[in-house]
Structures are given as C-alpha cells and as structure tokens.
Amino acid sequence: MGADNPQNGFNAFIKSLNNVLDTPVTWFRESVVARSRQEYPWYHRQFQRVPTIDECYTDDIVCYIEADEQFKRDRMVDNEVLNILRQRMEDCVMYEGPDAGRKCVKLREDYEKAAENWFIKYGDLGAHGNVVDAFMKQKHRMLWERRHGPVGSGMKNKI
C-alpha cells in the first residue's frame, strides 16, 4: 500500500461502518422521503382577498361575512406583528441592560409607531368589534380630521 491509497485497517473499518449505517438511511431519504414531499411556496395558508365592506352592497350578506372574516384575519396578523415587535424591543432591553435607552431606540420607535397604527385601526372596538364598527371608526376619524385637523393636534381655531 503506497501513499496513493492509504487503506489501513481503521479506514477500512470506517468505510464499512459507513456502508452499514449511512447508506441505507441515505437511500431511504432520497428514494422515499424526497419523492413524496411536495414543494409548498408558503408555510401558511394564503387567502384570496375579497371586497372590503365599503365595496359591498347593503343587502349582500355574503359579501359582508367575507369582509368580516378577512377583517378578523387581518386583525390577527396585525396582533402577531405587534407582539413580535414588542418581544424584540423587550429582548433588546433585557440584553442591553443600562444601555438600552441608547441602543434600542430604533426598535422602540418601530414598536410605538406600530402600536399607534394598531390603535388607530382597532382600538376601542373591543373583542367583538367587527368590520362595520372599524369602518365607522375610520369614517368618523376622517370626518374629524377634515373638520378639526389631525387627531391629537388640537382643534382648529374658527376664523
């Protein structure tokens, strides 16, 4: 045995052990598992967007129910996004300790802006708020802003 083929006893043992243990597992994975798997482009269910409540006729109950279900799904997604942002901010504060006020500013701003937007859309609706309640809230906010300026900026002075 020369330098080209270092086939000593230990290498032969490792090769035979590989043939006994790894080869059947590799064959099973490539021929059974990989062939039976399907490619999923998403790891969660994708729903087709439906018309919103302002696009529904007043007597179209099916459209109302679809819009309400979409609203509930959107609220759950927004809740999870807000929870993730909150958790990231809290993790940063716990990790950074005394320096968190300086190092976690971007995460805190992102969370506060997302929480403000969440409250603008879903706040004061309660647990049983539906799409019509949210639509009326949006309508009332738009009317208020048209008459008095942005919410929180104080009322316009009448001239």
Rank of each mutant, 00 (worst) to 15 (best):
M1A: 10
G2P: 07
A3H: 11
D4M: 14
N5H: 12
N8F: 08
N8S: 10
G9L: 13
F10I: 15
F10E: 07
A12K: 15
F13M: 12
I14C: 07
I14M: 09
K15C: 06
S16H: 08
N19T: 07
N19I: 04
N19C: 03
V20R: 11
V20A: 11
L21N: 04
D22G: 10
T23L: 11
V25F: 10
T26K: 15
F28C: 03
E30V: 02
E30L: 09
S31I: 07
V32N: 03
V33R: 05
V33N: 01
A34L: 11
S36T: 10
Q38D: 03
E39P: 04
Y40E: 10
Y40T: 05
Y40D: 04
P41E: 02
Y43L: 14
H44D: 06
Q48I: 13
T52M: 12
I53N: 00
D54I: 04
C56Q: 01
Y57D: 13
T58V: 12
C63F: 02
Y64Q: 05
I65M: 11
I65S: 06
I65C: 08
I65G: 01
E66N: 13
E69T: 03
E69V: 07
F71P: 00
F71S: 00
K72L: 03
R73A: 03
M76R: 14
V77F: 15
D78E: 06
N79S: 14
E80F: 14
L82I: 03
Q87A: 09
R88M: 05
M89E: 04
E90F: 06
D91S: 07
M94W: 12
D99N: 12
R102I: 09
C104W: 01
K106M: 09
R108Y: 08
Y111A: 02
E112R: 07
K113G: 02
A114H: 09
A114G: 07
A115D: 06
E116D: 10
E116M: 05
W118C: 02
F119G: 09
I120R: 15
K121F: 02
K121A: 09
K121H: 06
Y122P: 03
G126E: 04
G126L: 06
A127L: 13
G129Y: 06
G129T: 06
N130G: 13
V132Q: 04
D133S: 09
A134N: 02
Q138C: 03
K139E: 12
R141T: 05
M142R: 15
E145T: 02
G149A: 00
G149M: 01
G152H: 02
K158M: 08
